[in-house]
Design a protein around this nucleic acid. Sequence first.
RNA 1: GGCGGCAUCGCCAAGUGGUAAGGCAAGGGUCUGCAAAAUCCUCACCCCCGGUUCGAAUCCGGGUGUCGCCUCCA
Length: 468
Amino acid sequence: MKIYNTLSRQKEEFIPVEAGKVKMYNCGPTVYNYFHIGNARNLVVFDVIRRYFQFRGYEVSYAQNITDIDDKIIAQSITEGIPTDEVTRKYITAFLEDLDKLDVNPPDYQPRATQYISQMINFIRALEEKGYAYEAEGDVYFAVEKFAAYGKLSGKKLVDLKVGARVEENEQKRYPFDFTLWKKAKPGEPKWQSPWGEGRPGWHTECVVMSRDLLGETFDIHGGGNDLVFPHHENEIAQGEAYCGHPTVNYWLHNGFLNIEGEKMSKSAGNFFIARDVLQKYPAEAIRYFFLSKHYRSPIDFNEEIIQQSLAAVKTLYSALKDVDYLNQQDLPEYSEAQQKLKEQFLDVMDDDFNTARAIALLFEAGKEARNKDNSEEDRLRFARLLVELGSVLGFFRNLAEKLSAGEDISGKTASLIELLLTYRQDFKKEKNWQWADKIRNDLKELGINLKDTPQGTEWGIDENAKV
RNA sequence: GGCGGCAUCGCCAAGUGGUAAGGCAAGGGUCUGCAAAAUCCUCACCCCCGGUUCGAAUCCGGGUGUCGCCUCCA
């Protein structure tokens, strides 16, 4: 497998720290609000990366933090007029719900910053002892100049940074790019007792402390959105390596940003999309398809048209499964050479830095073969089986049975009513009263019930537009 | 100002030296009373200029356009 490492700016052969195992960490949300569609991309991308490693036979340990103490949370608690712990409780619950709605498998670990306060304090003290950190009136800073490799991830040099300097003035800092390890509490703010007085940890420290606790001193993959490269991950590297004297992460993976109609998403610009709102309007699989149709490192542009296209594409995939009556198949036949070959192609493209766009094309190939009436019944089922197997690696087809039987859950009375209408329509058809026959069909369609005249009679089904 | 990405059919998007995957949409055929669904067929020389090469969308140089990071941010 080859994966792109931000650190080296090239694809590298993936070699795990421990054979057969993958330890990965992804920067999770700060729970001060519902997460947005851009966050959703990161969640889905790393969900797929994790699923693929598992599919490849690796035992994966996946940790994703929840930042539950931070300036933004304090600000939100003032806005909403509720204590910070209520803010975090509210948005953690929402986060977990939305994660599920997105068909993202929950991480193995979801550590919260507040559960690691004492360990962070110990960590910061150790940095202080090693001479990488200094205290200034209750705040503690990391001295970036002490860490020679600072900037190696983002390709920035301290000299260059100086020139562009858009950094906040802070005369307590010895150097403008020194970052906060411990922040002194202002009156009324949440606080913990520490050697430097009451305060709270800075943002960059939690990921270092929690990842080493859960995944070990050196682990395989650390991920996050592209914007975290600098300064967040740069600062993580500085702390982590200053602490233990060697790299702690082997592969740094970053997903590209999501734009809205070509513009960066921002609340002030009014083009801000909360994931749960989008999920209310479109099925998770359409959103997932949209994310995976482009390589995870490239920027992606979100708009209504794209999601509609994605939805149509996902439906095409499902129609293949309906075609072979997948739901009612018992023992699916074993793969023959053709399916094996397609599966190998899937492995090849996914091995190449998770090329989900090409992987999706292979899904369509399997779907096409599953529908191809020239194939034997057995072969069609084999391809359908492959479609489901590979599609699941990308996170599609969750609760498949439920989705394929959509419409069958309609209550008995309603169903009989529809059947009744159909018998009337049948009579009209016999009389060649096309006007009325068509009216029934059109009116039902408006109610979301689609009719299909077949030689065996008229079939009806619920329009799955909203459900896939 | 510093650093980096991208530019491929109407739309989305793979492909990084050997003659353009896939999806959506569109057009045509089959099926149908008409539809729908399904199915078959059709649909691009890759931003511009120059260079390297037997051969470039793919490499190099220049240009134009566009996006991002350098501040909290996925």
